[in-house]
Computed example of a mutant assay.
Amino acid sequence: MMNIKPSAAIRKNYNEVSELCKRSGEPVYLTKNGEGDLVVMDIATYMRRESMLRLRESLVIAEESRLQGNTGRSVDDVSAMMKAAVREVLDGHRK
């Protein structure tokens, strides 16, 4: 579910917007004059998204390398990297 609020909501009721971010685990989209203006989210959601972006970037780099003919890493190495990445995402989610 997309949470959309007018920008005045953050000025008038910061605590409500903050609680909505934390409770939903989703960003809140703020509008100004009926148009999208800002996105706010709690720090745990932000950290989780950043971790997932880093993981995706690593996977894209590895796939590009593989397509260029590089033999890459062993299955055990990749498994260990994936477990570490999942732990990072989960730990970011718990904070």
Rank of each mutant, 00 (worst) to 15 (best):
S7M: 12
R73A: 15
L38Y: 15
E88V: 06
V60D: 05
R54K: 11
G92S: 07
M2I: 12
A80E: 15
Y14S: 04
K83I: 04
I61Y: 12
V60K: 03
E88M: 12
R66Y: 06
H93D: 00
L30F: 08
R49P: 03
R11S: 07
M52V: 11
R48K: 13
G72K: 14
L53P: 00
G25K: 13
T31P: 00
M2C: 07
N15Q: 08
P6I: 15
V75N: 12
S7W: 11
L38D: 08
A62K: 03
K22A: 06
M81H: 01
G72P: 11
A80W: 11
R94N: 10
S65W: 14
V75C: 09
R23V: 00
A84H: 14
L59Q: 03
N70Q: 11
I43F: 15
V75H: 09
T71E: 15
K32Q: 09
K32G: 05
R54V: 04
M41K: 12
L90D: 15
L38F: 15
L90C: 06
Y14V: 10
D91N: 07
E26F: 03
N3Y: 02
R94G: 05
L90A: 10
A62F: 06
V28I: 09
Y29C: 04
T71L: 15
Y29W: 05
V75G: 08
M2G: 03
Q68L: 05
E63P: 00
S18L: 11
V78Y: 15
A62T: 08
V86E: 04
N15Y: 09
N70T: 11
R94Y: 08
P6T: 14
D76W: 02
I10V: 08
K83C: 01
S58Q: 04
I10E: 09
A8R: 14
V40A: 10
A85C: 05
R73W: 09
E19P: 01
T31R: 09
V60Q: 11
D76T: 01
S7E: 12
E26M: 09
G25V: 00
A84V: 01
D42Q: 01
S24M: 01
K12E: 07
L55P: 00
M81T: 02
E35V: 13
I43N: 13
H93M: 02
D77N: 08
E50G: 04
Q68P: 02
V40C: 05
V60S: 12
Y29M: 02
D42F: 02
R54P: 00
V40D: 07
R49A: 11
R23P: 00
R54E: 12
L30Q: 12
E50K: 13
T45A: 04
E26K: 06
